[in-house]
Design a protein around this nucleic acid. Sequence first.
DNA 1: GTAGATTAGTTGTTGCATCTTACTAAACAG
DNA 2: CTGTTTAGTAAGATGCAACAACTAATCTAC
Lengths: 398, 398
Amino acid sequence: MQSTHLREHNLSLCLRTLSSAPEPLSRAGLAARTGLTKPTVSKLVEELIGAGLVAEDAPLIHGTGRPMVPLRPASGTLLAIGLEVTAVGVSCLATDLTGEVLAAADETLDAVAAPPSRVIEACGRLVSAVRGTASADAPAPLPVVGVCAALPGRIDPADGSVLSAPGLGWSDVPFVARLRERPELAGLTVLAQNDNRLSVLTELDQRPGQSFVYLRGHTGVGGAVVLGGRVLEGEHGWAGEFGHMVVEPGGALCRCGRRGCLEAYVSAHALRERAGLGPESSLEELVDALAHASGTGRTDGRSEVIGTIGRAIGTAVANALNVLDLSTVVLSGHLAPIGEEIGPVISETVAEHALATEAGPITIERSDAPADLALRGAARWALEPVFAAPGQWIARAA
Amino acid sequence: MQSTHLREHNLSLCLRTLSSAPEPLSRAGLAARTGLTKPTVSKLVEELIGAGLVAEDAPLIHGTGRPMVPLRPASGTLLAIGLEVTAVGVSCLATDLTGEVLAAADETLDAVAAPPSRVIEACGRLVSAVRGTASADAPAPLPVVGVCAALPGRIDPADGSVLSAPGLGWSDVPFVARLRERPELAGLTVLAQNDNRLSVLTELDQRPGQSFVYLRGHTGVGGAVVLGGRVLEGEHGWAGEFGHMVVEPGGALCRCGRRGCLEAYVSAHALRERAGLGPESSLEELVDALAHASGTGRTDGRSEVIGTIGRAIGTAVANALNVLDLSTVVLSGHLAPIGEEIGPVISETVAEHALATEAGPITIERSDAPADLALRGAARWALEPVFAAPGQWIARAA
DNA sequence: GTAGATTAGTTGTTGCATCTTACTAAACAG
DNA sequence: CTGTTTAGTAAGATGCAACAACTAATCTAC
């Protein structure tokens, strides 16, 4: 490691520490947290303020001594743009460094019927619109750190092409390459990531530095593994894809063609089928059917369905926890609202099979994050280069 | 990070790079590999040589240009001591920085019948003996970097106490604390780790920086997860304990009391039972029975046994790979010799269930490491502080 | 056999990031 | 108004790695 990397590392450390702190820190507090000295922190913070990445609040008197100058990530000085493509449309959103949403827009579009090129055009339009709206109040257009798209499928981490997205009917679509060609995105950093992996970033804001297993029901079932605040990548970028873990060898047929996958039991489609609902029923109806016996009237059927789902998830989670030796599980997406019902069954199954129960309780938590999880996560991911290497961003922006 | 840490980091980088290089590197080669400049490497290497951590070989002419001075980890300048406790005895071994064994000794002891205190006494005696033998040729006693014990059970990473070791009949034994009290080990760094997790370190020497899943059959079945050359810890230090992954809900009864654990299918005990051998039969007999139809004469039974074992391992491995998104599996311990037989069944099962097959082939490899795997791994782990912070060791030794 | 090319490694200097020490600033307590 | 406490700054010292230029040792070519 070279000495210039040291500075970059410490800049990043300061910025991240400020970002993840529950409340604004003073320079002195930042020095204490990072282990750097006060003069060093002062210099680094000065640079971050100069670049518009950090802002000072009004001095705050707390007890005796000189009042502290609270520091916080600057708001409204730059844009990170998130995109989300689903079967029914494209959404777009611009945030600043704090994650505050400055503008949003969306377009309805049947992504299954329409060719990918139409979707990519829509993305271009939305990015352009959102850039305009977000910069409307500012004297000059805000600089864009990057654009990241959330896609419901497997993405090649090397070039951001979509290897397969069953929900969109896509396979081998060079999404990022095409998006980069759009005139509206000329010169911008463009990324793409799986929607589940991006969702977890939003969750991570609530749990900085923690380790947990994240399970998200959306159309299928996906998730992520978070170790010490970092999302595990894996060799092909799909670590934590729990949907196709085997929960019962030779069991139910999954749409992937295999047998006994978790997804065959708890995808939105499988849940509706098990709950006796039509494929067009809403999530609310589904939750209602599972949560209240009155939903379908079939009390026995309900508890049986809940048992099947709970045991399937429990088995998958227990296996994941045995491999990773973690003790926190976060349920999100359509698994969060039904978490209250299936939680106990999951806990029971996990307690039965997970080794970690011998060391302490395993907590199954429900995410209370907002609905546009993946979209926010995408914007958050677009910001990542700034957090990782603030010095490079400063040099680029200047 | 402070600037003094930078130097420590670079010292460590140089030492590790030299250690993991397949053949000696010159200063210039080391500079190229580490990304540091030649002058910087020269300075760092000078310090490492001065401290007896690196040695120069005779200059070597290779083609045109000035001959290089090959550098390699110094041999015979310090001691790392490994211990291994099994049901039948205690083994001990001293290596230098290169991993070369300088001395070894063992004691037969029925660790199940004898109280832990007897085992700890034996450890003390063996360490003392091994230190003497290893330093016999040297003009002065060699400094000991540390002692690490391999134990067949779950270890508290905080204090090195044995939480449970079914094979020894131990539970809640403050092993490290007691061992540290022995006069023979006064002043030494003492560590303890699970034997499977230490075994993988020996494997890692062959695969520096790689990522793989490591499965080791010993008495039970354990393993480890290696991500980028680092062994995953987990919250309680037992990540990668694959033995109790569920491979068939409600399946065979495991000695842990649960049902359907991998270990219930492929522990040495379970294998013997399935192969129709007595509990006292040797590993050779077992391999023979599985490898050759002539072993027991029951050809049908054999292929059925192999199928059951292979599918059990395959299911567990596929699930682990789905969580981690890796594509290499290494079989070790008693799984290595039978690997040729069960390998195809495992591959087949994994190919059927693992998502990563869609991106490329998954390789199931057999470890060809020596038998005293865990013991060597223990010594290797005792060395770790020197590799991680050579500067501190130099300061301590001086 | 001498000049040139090539690779290895060292020397001295420079630049840069952090640390140390000592200071000023701004509040409160008595 | 003086002492105490906490925040933040200034100036100089320290220490590390980078850079450029050098020496060292070998081979090749004419």
